[in-house]
């Protein structure tokens, strides 16, 4: 069996890389694949928290690379999905304690066992970034519809292309359809026009996602959450299915508008 290694990166911090990683990992496992998610954000790990596996960590990525434990010992099985594993990052070390070759070797080993290896890349473009993109065969860029995030995404795309990772795909996170409609937020076309890459999916801003993240359950398990549905579609696209982009339309009803004007609506979007 030969797996595929995908890196999730963004340049800027706080755009949702870790959440995206957790959800894509869970989504691919839901579709029946054997998946391992790899947290390379050494020193600032939180993929384990997002997946609700913090309490189970015994060994971490650095332990594996420095051969203090076996690879299988460091892999934590997900609570909900038996085919999903996490290799957590070390919290007490820093990004310079591993290098790209070591991580590449590790991923080549994992590819023998798993269908997908999803790497959660740290923010920035320094050593941690270079480590994370080293083993990857594909890259997914996560961005939010903000100028600063786009600027960083653009830079990262340039760096990925320079590292022979061509044609990265783009996930636009935290879109607010209402704002886009009013012209207060960059829309999909603006972003794709600027970055000139293929779009993999759009994820609406969603309160349920925040709740789910805090509970340590990837939102993709929540069938009602728009963001969870968006991640399901993204996962299907990664898996090769041809799924249309989510139709993000603000609620059009009178009551919604009234609620919005009164400031009591909880979310200003719905999905079609």
């Amino acid at each position: 069996m030969k797996g595929k290694t995908i890196v999730i990166t963004s340049g800027k911090g706080g755009v949702g890389k870790t959440t995206t990683t957790a959800n894509i990992g869970a989504g691919l496992a839901l579709r029946g694949h054997r998946v391992v998610v790899l947290d390379t954000d050494i020193g600032l790990r939180n993929l384990d928290v997002v997946m609700g596996l913090e309490n189970r960590i015994v060994y971490d990525l650095v332990d594996v690379i420095e051969e203090r434990c076996k690879l299988s010992q460091s892999m934590i099985r997900d609570k909900h999905l038996p085919e999903l594993y996490l290799i957590p990052a070390a919290q007490t070390r820093d990004k310079n304690c591993i290098n790209s070759e070591q991580l590449t070797d590790l991923c080549r080993k994992l590819e023998q066992e798993f269908d997908y290896i999803i790497i959660d890349c740290p923010a920035g473009i320094e050593q941690g970034f270079r480590n994370a993109i080293g083993p990857a065969q594909e890259a997914i860029i996560v961005t939010t519809p903000e100028v600063s995030a786009l600027r960083d995404a653009d830079r990262v795309i340039g760096l990925l292309e320079a590292s022979e990772l061509h044609r990265p795909r783009l996930i636009i996170n935290r879109i607010r359809p209402g704002m886009v409609k009013r012209g207060d937020m960059l829309d999909k076309d603006d972003i794709v026009d600027l970055l000139a890459v293929d779009i993999l999916g759009m994820v609406p801003a969603d309160d349920r996602l925040i709740t789910a993240t805090n509970q340590g359950i990837p939102v993709i398990h929540d069938k009602k959450a728009p963001s969870g549905q968006a991640f399901s579609r993204i996962t299907a696209r990664i898996d090769g299915d041809d799924v249309p982009l989510m139709d993000l339309e603000p609620k059009g009803g009178l009551m919604d508008r009234v609620r919005y004007l009164m400031g009591i609506n909880r979310s200003e979007y719905t999905h079609a």
């Binding site: 340039g158 760096l159 292309e161 320079a162 590292s163 022979e164």
Partner: peptide, 8 residues
Amino acid sequence: FPELDQAQ
């Protein structure tokens, strides 16, 4: 682009 040497 430190990687430029191998790139493109």
